[in-house]
Design a binder for these strands. Structure first.
Length: 782
DNA sequence: TGCGAGTCAATATG
DNA sequence: CATATTGACTCGCA
């Protein structure tokens, strides 16, 4: 498995120590349905990972209370062996109290100084602040409201960090005017804390790390205690009032000109831009779970988080959260996950504060006077339970503080993706004139079905084929190209769970399983007929007992997938891709000009497109299912099948495999019990890999080779091995095995292409009428 | 130039 | 209203 990661490089999130705690049962309803499952999966289980890989690092659990002491707190110094670059140095805190200690010892952000930033060696700052109260804040149903802690915590922070923060000067805390309100003091404290972290990082104050850690240790312990017991409140009971006030104050305080949303590519001041060592492997899956949890926990809308933390759109975030690519597969996309990671590493107050900071920034930018500045998260704090309100009050204050800090500490907006669109095509013209805002194209059902069906057959159709498709579906070529591009990528994405290396294989979709098996069957039959193979081949490795010695001469199939049959019949690869309703509609619509309708009314809509510009190049093929099958039946001698069987046959026949496969399918389909499709066969890969049975796809691995000198064998022979071919056609004995094999493969390829094209024609023709009918709606495709 | 990656942002959907 | 979907766009790379 390529997924196997070097333990040392595996940075995962320990669900058990983060949101998978006894925190509260109420949380579970907000968690992904498979949350427990996944959280306890080996991959996601920090404990397991920790056990197996002592260097495995996990996300710091924050805002969590748990008696679980066995966190995957593995920021061992050995995590990295490149000396000073030891990312993620551990925060060694004692565990006096379970909840507080737990979060304490795991909290802190780990920032790696960039090597080239200031010339100093990479340094790592362990910044941690008032998250002592996080546990309580989050555990709002199990702990008395931790309210006044804010003040105490702030004081504490100020005391502990203030003096270190002061030297920061340059960009952050020093800029802060004396806060006029008590709340502001909190803000300044937080600002100091934040600034400290940044300054430390910025200045690479490596030496201060140890001392700071010590201080933080004490600080956190105390904070934790304080937070866990006190009940006062800095201000009155109006959390949001206080918060808003704070926000407003900080806004005033920081007369920073509306920071044009200019993105710094790499702002060293931004903790979210903290570098993550290349050797670190972030478990994006867990990260996303964690993020999703955090967002829900604090009622942070995706849009807010996406825009203010990640500088991405809501849709992007949603997509990432739902379909995170493995870290090792990410390229520039790591940036986004890195920010997520860094954000989640922050103390709770900081996390929320940053959000607010960006919020304010945005407000200033957009002059959205109507937009309340309050915390986006749990603003109304309808959060479950009254305790939540209380704790969130404290939280809000902290957040406000952090916000103030962040807002004045030079925190920069997120780093933009290198390839984000910088100019929206839908840009409003001057004076709000809605510039040519072409409505977004939405494929019609027919278009989509057709495209998807084709995609199943050919993930990468040739340019010509795309052109044909575009013509038939009345779409732009670019649209078709985009579709396949997107489909490929998203298909790839959705299959990321599968063994990646195998995806490099010329992967063909499910229905091929039938043909694949048929091929095997045909081979077997041929072999038997030729009398060459004395004994029946192994059920799992049909006919290929002798092929091990010459793997290049043949192909195997990997795992005929279980769902093959059902997919075969439902994949829509029938002459019509229409639903029954659609068929009815079309039959009605076409009843007028539909004179020579196909014989099979049930499955064949009128193929004659009444379009003004019919695709002359590709005249429709009024073929019914029966008509399509007839030749096959005749050729194979297979008696008429049930409709379902016919569909299977047709499907198999139209697969982009070889005609041999189709014929073999036809010949054997009747004999093939559904179980037959579950047989396992194997594909010898160049790298020796094999697909596992669970793989959904059936894979052919045709041998690449030049066309040999051998005469083209009949289609049904293409599925044979050279030995079988020779047995079948003695004349071929003179042909070298290798040449024979190559010739066969070349022919297969050729036939495959031809059939793809034919199939496409059929497909398109069959749906032409429907497509036209549907597309003739006012929407028009282009 | 074509493709893939990463996104945006309009729309769907719940 | 929040989240999910998805066609199209931009950028980097081979």
């Amino acid at each position: 498995m390529e997924k196997s990661r070097r333990p040392a490089d595996f940075l995962t999130i320990d669900p058990s120590s983060t949101f998978m705690t006894a925190t509260s049962s109420r949380n579970f309803e907000e968690l992904p349905e498979n949350f427990l499952e996944s959280a306890n999966s080996p991959q996601g289980n920090g404990n397991d990972g920790a056990a197996n890989s002592p260097q495995l690092a996990s996300l710091t659990p924050m805002a969590m209370s748990s008696s679980d002491q066995s966190t995957s707190y593995q920021y061992g110094s050995g995590l990295k062996d490149d000396g000073p670059a030891g990312l993620l140095s551990p925060l060694h805190l004692d565990n006096r109290r379970s909840s507080a200690t737990f979060s304490q010892r795991n909290s802190g952000i780990y920032i790696k100084e960039e090597d080239g930033l200031d010339g100093s060696p990479p340094q790592h700052l362990l910044m941690s602040s008032m998250h002592g109260g996080q546990a309580d804040l989050d555990r709002n149903d199990a702990t008395p409201p931790a309210v006044s802690n804010v003040e105490l915590a702030s004081t504490m922070i100020t005391t502990i960090l203030g003096d270190q923060a002061s030297p920061v000067s340059s960009s952050s805390a020093a800029v802060l005017p004396p806060p006029p309100q008590p709340a502001a003091s909190i803000a300044s404290a937080a600002a100091a804390a934040a600034a400290l972290g940044q300054s430390v990082r910025r200045n690479s104050i490596a030496g201060s790390l140890n001392g700071l850690q010590q201080d933080l240790k004490v600080d956190q312990d105390e904070l934790g205690m304080l937070n866990g017991s006190s009940s006062g409140r800095v201000h009155n009971g109006d959390d949001m009032a206080g918060y808003r006030y704070q926000t407003a104050t900080s806004s005033r305080v920081a007369p920073v000109p509306p920071p044009k949303r200019v993105y710094s590519i790499n702002d060293a001041n931004d903790p979210l831009n903290a570098e993550i060592d290349d050797d670190i492997y972030i478990d994006t899956k867990d990260l996303c779970k964690r993020i999703a949890y955090e967002l829900k926990q604090h009622s942070i809308p995706q849009a807010i988080f996406a825009e203010r933390i990640l500088c991405r759109s809501q849709g992007t975030l949603s997509d990432l959260l739902r379909n995170p690519k493995p870290w090792n597969k990410l390229k520039s996309g790591r940036e986004t996950f890195r920010r997520m990671f860094n954000w989640v590493q922050q103390p709770l107050a900081m996390r929320l504060g940053i959000l607010d900071m960006y919020n304010k920034e945005m407000n200033a930018l957009e002059k959205a006077a109507s937009v309340p500045t309050g915390l986006p998260m749990a603003a109304a704090n309808g959060g479950p339970g009254g305790a939540a309100a209380a704790s969130n009050a404290a939280l809000a204050a902290q957040a406000a503080a952090a916000a103030a800090a962040a807002g004045n500490s030079g925190l920069s907006p997120p780093t933009p993706a290198q390839n984000v669109r910088h100019h929206r095509r839908s840009s409003m013209g001057e004076d709000g004139q809605p510039a040519n805002k072409r409505p977004r194209l939405v494929f019609t059902d027919i278009q989509k079905r057709t495209l998807q069906a084709i995609f199943k057959e050919t993930q990468r159709p040739s340019r010509e084929m795309q052109q044909t498709i575009a013509e038939h579906l009345r779409l732009d070529l670019s649209t078709v190209a985009n579709f396949f591009m997107n489909a490929r990528r998203r298909s790839r994405l959705s299959h990321d769970d599968e063994p990646a290396p195998y995806q490099q294989v010329e992967a063909l979709l499910t229905a091929e399983a039938a043909a694949a098996v048929a091929v095997a069957e045909a081979e077997k039959a041929a072999a038997a007929a030729a009398g060459s193979s004395s004994s029946s081949p192994s059920p799992t490795v049909p006919t290929h007992t002798s092929l091990a010695a010459k793997p290049s001469t043949s192909f195997f199939v990997v795992s005929a997938p279980r769902p093959a049959l059902s997919l075969l019949t439902s994949s829509g690869l029938t002459p019509s891709l229409l639903s029954p309703e659609e068929r009815r509609q079309l039959q009605q619509q076409n009843s007028n000009n539909n004179t020579a309708s196909s014989s099979s009314a049930a499955s064949s809509p009128s193929p004659s497109p009444p379009s003004p510009s019919p695709p002359a190049k590709h005249p429709p093929h009024p073929q019914s299912l029966g008509a399509l099958l007839a030749p096959i039946m005749a050729a194979s001698g297979v008696p008429p099948q049930s409709p379902l069987q016919q569909q299977r046959l047709l499907h198999a026949m139209t697969k982009p495999t070889t005609m041999a496969a189709a014929l073999a399918t036809a010949r054997n389909a009747a004999l093939l019990a559904p179980q037959a499709l579950q047989r396992k066969v194997f594909v010898p890969r160049a790298n020796g890999s094999l697909l596992v049975p669970a793989v959904r796809r059936c894979v052919f691995t045709p041998v690449k080779g030049s066309v040999g000198a051998a005469a083209p064998p009949p289609p049904s022979l293409l599925s044979m091995t050279p030995a079988q071919l020779v047995a079948e056609i003695p004349q071929l004995a003179a042909v070298p095995t290798q040449a024979l094999a190559e010739a066969v493969e070349a022919l297969k390829e050729k036939q495959k292409e031809e059939q793809q094209q034919e199939q496409l024609q059929t497909l398109l023709a069959a749906d032409a009428a429907a497509a036209v009918a549907v597309q003739s709606e006012p929407e028009s495709c282009h």
